[in-house]
Each structure stands twice: as structure tokens, then as C-alpha cells.
Design a protein around this nucleic acid. Structure first.
Lengths: 212, 212
DNA sequence: ATTTGCCTCCCCCGCGCGGGGGAGGCGGAT
DNA sequence: ATCCGCCTCCCCCGCGCGGGGGAGGCAAAT
């Protein structure tokens, strides 16, 4: 807050760059330090200028925003990345947030909101457009478990089946016979329609049945 | 937008309830239709009043916000849930968003922001406090891969190791000898320091090395 | 009181797999 | 021209595990 926020704008349309720059310069605490017309140029500019944050258009010729974001993340992890796209939420957003992109806004955002978004991201927060956030949150929700009803004991065994322990080891942990564990395991595999421990464990993880 | 947003407030502190109600009534499009002092009461009130959205304090006696949210989600999935907590972001937030809670704000939120958050959630968007969002996004990022460098071929084999196929089947798919697959598998397990296919597959999934 | 679901325990068989060894060809790096 | 990483292929051993049986006890539901 004490120092100004140094911004680099990367977009293939000159009009958009100029427009963004104009809007952002209205904010006294912002300093637009550079512009670039595609990912390749933007990447080099970012390395030279070392801005606090880069505003990157997702769709660009030569090198798009996705590639640039991944590359920049590797070379300069301290530079925050704010992704800009059209009104549609792209599925690439998952790869982007997974890659550590801090911000994601749509181009129809209101200037005031954009300013707040940039401030938030520059201060170490994450800012995702509501639509994007909703998509991300939805993605987190475990898949609709297709009618798999395991008993409490079976859930417990399933947890253990996702560990390196052998059935014998699991048995001694639970103070029951190995045969009992094998019995439960058989029922679990049948209920889950999985051929072995490995697949059952993977399926359980996908459905959120077991902790990661 | 045409109709007003009907709100139910659930918090164990009367002062907080009154304060919230007062703030929210200032917004003409809001209608506070009820208050409750704990989850159990709030749950019944919600079923009777069928509000558009419930503001729920996370920590309450008798039945806390988590329990209430899960129960309400089951009985009335159409009612939006906005969780309120102190200044600390609780780890339960993961279970909550996974359960489908649409909103999560801290109590030090500014009134104007709270109004906007409620409007956003009521309109079907998701609103998470920036700190919460950051935590959630971080959770999505694959764990920092601790220096596991697999060759291209090994990555390919690893993918297959996460499937139900036997090494023999994988071999025939790739048109190589089963022995070669076993060879790669041995190297992979050693590099990943995992005792078997199952653990390697789970680890690969956690690290985002393989698709879900 | 009978049924039903759940947990418990037992036997046998075959095979997929982990772990140990070794070896040859091929391409890039130096 | 030599070295080294990668991919390829081979052998043997032991055991963990999947799949097929069956059985008894106990509590809740009916």
C-alpha cells in the first residue's frame, strides 16, 4: 500500500491496452509500467520490468495467455497474474488456477471492480470472477456418488485400503482377523464394482469418500 | 430482482442478530423474515419460512452452522446458505463448500460488502471471502511435486498403472513386451518411493500427474 | 419370534505383482 | 569416440490379493 502497484498490460488489441491503461492510471496508487501485444513479448517484458502484477488477455496470437502464465509462473513466481477473457468462462480456468493464477476477470467487468480486483491480488489475495468462482467451487464438489452404500465398518476398511498396509497389517491395526478384513474388502469391491484395491481407492478419492 | 430477498438469520448472540437485521433492513430489496438462536431452531424455522437465503453463524451451541448447513442442504436444497464466522478462516470451509454452501464471509465484513454478497448469492452466484477463496484455490493446486522426474515413457506407463489393466494388457496396448512394462513400473515405483501400483496411482492423482 | 443386516472368522486356489538379478541397442552429449 | 540416459527384453522367487465357497453371533426391525 505504501508503494505504488506496478502493472504490465498484455493484450493483442491496442485499443484494449490503451483503454485499460487509461482506466488504471486514474488510480493514483497504480503505475502502468508497460504494454505488450502477445505472450512472447509480454513474457520478456515481464522479466525485464519485474512488475507487481500482469494483466493478461487469455486469447492472443503467437503465445496465448495460458502459455504465458505457465511460463511466467516458472520464471518469476513472485509476479502476480490477472487473467482477462471475454464474457465466456473458459474451461482452461481450471488449469490456470491450478497453475497458480491469482486473478481471473471477465472483460465486461466494471472499472471500479477491476481496480479492487487488482488491489486484492497485489495484496496477496485471490480474486476470481463470481462465475469463475462458481465453476471452480462446483468442480470441487465430489462427483454424484452413484448409489454406493457402504456400512460404517466398510467405510473404515476402505480408508485403510487406500494405504500401503496389507490386509494383515490392517487387521492388526483394527484388532480383528485378517480374514474379516478380506471379507469386508470383498464386499466393498463388489459394491463398488471395482476389480481391485487400487481402483477402489482411486474411485473413493474421486468421489471424496476418503481424505487426501 | 423483481421480488424481495427473504432472509433468515441464525446466530446465538442476540446482539449480532439484531445488528445484522438492522443493517439488512436498510436495503429495500431485503426482507428479514426470521431469526433463530441455534442450528436446531434455525433448521425448523428455515423449513417453515422457506427463505431465499439463511445467514448462519458457524459456531453455535446445540447445533453448529456446519451441521445445520448439511441438514438444510438435504432437506431444502433450494435455500441458499451464507456462512458467517469470526476473523479466522476455519478448515471446515472445505467441507462446507464441498457440501454446497454458496457464501462464506467473515464477521468483520463491511455492511455494503455483505449486502452485495447476499445479492450475489441470492442470484445464484457464489461468494467467498477473499481469504477463504485463496484457501480453497490453494487446496486445488496439486501438491508441490517433490522432485519426481519421470521420463516421458514412464509418465505414459504411470497413466496406465492407474487403470485396471494388468501389465500384460498394458504391454499389448503399447505393443511392447510385458517385461518392459514391468521394468518401467519397477523404476517408477523406486523413483516415487511407493510400495505398489495403488499407492503410486493415488500419489500421481494427488500431484495432478494424471487426469481424473 | 422370526427375519434381516452387519460384523466376525475360516479354507483353498491361482495369478498378478514387487524385488532381485542381468543384458543389448540407440541416440545425444562431451 | 566414449559415455550415459533411455527404452527394450529376459529369468526367478515369494507373497499379497481377488474370487470362490461357508458359518456363527448379535442387534434392530417387523
Amino acid at each position: 500500500m505504501s508503494e505504488s502497484i506496478r502493472i504490465l498490460i498484455v493484450d493483442d488489441h491496442a485499443v484494449v491496452r490503451k483503454g485499460l491503461a487509461m482506466v488504471l492510471r486514474l488510480e493514483p496508487s497504480f503505475e502502468v509500467v508497460g504494454e505488450a501485444e502477445n505472450g512472447r513479448v509480454g513474457l520478456e517484458a515481464a522479466k525485464k520490468l519485474n512488475p507487481d502484477i500482469v494483466l493478461v488477455d487469455l486469447v492472443m496470437p503467437e503465445m496465448d495467455g495460458q502459455e504465458m502464465a505457465l511460463a511466467l509462473r516458472k520464471s518469476n513466481p513472485n509476479i502476480k497474474i490477472m487473467m482477462l477473457t471475454g464474457t465466456e468462462v473458459d474451461d482452461r480456468v481450471f488449469d490456470l488456477v491450478a497453475a497458480g493464477v491469482e486473478g481471473y476477470v471477465l472483460k465486461n467487468i466494471e472499472p471500479g471492480e477491476l481496480v479492487r480486483a487488482i488491489q486484492a491480488v497485489a495484496h496477496g489475495e485471490a480474486y476470481l470472477h463470481p462465475d469463475v468462482m462458481k465453476k471452480v467451487v462446483n468442480k470441487m464438489q465430489p462427483l454424484p456418488a452413484p448409489a454406493i452404500s457402504l456400512t460404517a465398518r466398510e467405510m473404515e476398511i476402505l480408508d485403510w485400503m487406500a494405504t500401503p498396509n496389507t490386509y494383515k497389517q490392517i487387521a492388526s491395526q483394527l484388532s480383528i482377523s485378517e480374514e474379516t478384513v478380506r471379507s469386508h474388502a470383498k464386499n466393498i469391491l463388489e459394491k463398488m464394482k471395482q476389480p481391485n484395491r487400487a481402483q477402489a481407492a482411486l474411485m473413493a478419492m474421486k468421489m471424496g469418500l476418503i481424505k487426501l
